[in-house]
Amino acid sequence: MHYGRVPTFRPATWRLQIFGATASGEQHFLTWDDFGQLPRSTVLADFHCVTKFSIMGNEWTGVPASAFLAAVPPADGVGHVMIWAEYGYSANVRMGDFDRDSTLFATELDGKPLSPERGYPVRAVVPHLYAWKSVKWVRAIEYLTEDRRGFWEDRGYHNVADPWREQRYSYQEDPGEGPP
């Protein structure tokens, strides 16, 4: 499932922007070749959809989120990240969820390149949260000093999205789990 049509990937013009509250105060861009030079890792993780199904034991390979934090450090006080995709789709993630060993920007699933429908060329994978936080067709990472709701969060989904706590809808949020 996804929002919008499947975009066409053009490696010569593809850019990943890292912006917002960066330590340098500047926005940064990575080309497809730059992205390919970043460290890679593999994560074995389950995939939980808010519509109440799970796919167990997925092998995701790609660039760990920690590689972006090292290449373009956030400023002091950054507590959240907004992951942006094609067509303005976005998902907010707490820094503690973004900066986990299991969070990565996948280019492969189960040893094969991602299909366009699954997010090719790059899909965020935040496996310990519901799948809408695992943004397809990633184009930007924005460092935030204040939490802001992403696409589905703005439409009534839970701001945190922990499947083990069944955090599906915003009306379930406890104080402090959403933006002020």
Score class of each variant (00 low, 15 high):
178 G>K: 10
115 S>H: 08
170 S>R: 14
19 F>S: 08
98 F>A: 02
177 E>P: 05
30 L>T: 05
82 M>F: 02
4 G>W: 12
174 D>M: 13
62 G>N: 03
14 W>F: 15
8 T>N: 12
11 P>C: 01
85 A>G: 15
72 V>I: 15
136 K>A: 05
40 R>A: 10
40 R>V: 11
151 F>E: 13
107 T>S: 14
54 S>Q: 14
149 R>P: 12
78 V>G: 00
125 V>Q: 13
38 L>Q: 09
60 W>G: 00
82 M>P: 00
160 V>W: 00
5 R>P: 01
145 T>S: 09
169 Y>Q: 04
130 Y>H: 09
132 W>G: 01
145 T>F: 08
91 A>W: 00
180 P>D: 12
115 S>Q: 13
15 R>L: 11
20 G>I: 06
47 F>N: 12
119 G>H: 08
63 V>Y: 01
180 P>A: 15
66 S>W: 01
28 H>N: 06
131 A>R: 04
153 E>Y: 03
46 D>V: 08
22 T>S: 11
102 S>D: 14
49 C>G: 06
170 S>Q: 06
104 L>R: 00
84 W>L: 12
149 R>E: 09
61 T>N: 02
162 D>W: 06
64 P>G: 03
9 F>C: 08
77 G>Q: 03
13 T>M: 05
2 H>R: 15
86 E>Y: 11
20 G>Y: 04
31 T>S: 15
70 A>F: 02
116 P>R: 12
171 Y>A: 03
85 A>F: 04
64 P>E: 03
38 L>W: 10
1 M>D: 10
13 T>E: 09
59 E>W: 00
4 G>E: 10
163 P>W: 08
50 V>Q: 06
20 G>Q: 05
171 Y>W: 15
97 D>M: 01
62 G>T: 07
160 V>H: 01
51 T>H: 03
35 F>C: 04
35 F>K: 00
177 E>S: 13
106 A>F: 07
157 Y>A: 07
33 D>K: 15
45 A>P: 09
85 A>N: 03
149 R>T: 04
84 W>K: 12
41 S>M: 09
90 S>D: 14
9 F>K: 12
42 T>Q: 14
72 V>G: 07
61 T>L: 00
106 A>K: 10
65 A>I: 10
106 A>D: 08
46 D>C: 05
112 K>P: 00
167 Q>S: 09
145 T>E: 07
25 G>P: 06
13 T>C: 02
119 G>V: 05
80 H>L: 01
53 F>E: 03
120 Y>A: 15
45 A>I: 12
63 V>P: 03
178 G>C: 10
11 P>G: 02
93 V>F: 00
175 P>C: 06
151 F>R: 07
76 D>T: 13
150 G>F: 13
84 W>D: 13
88 G>P: 10
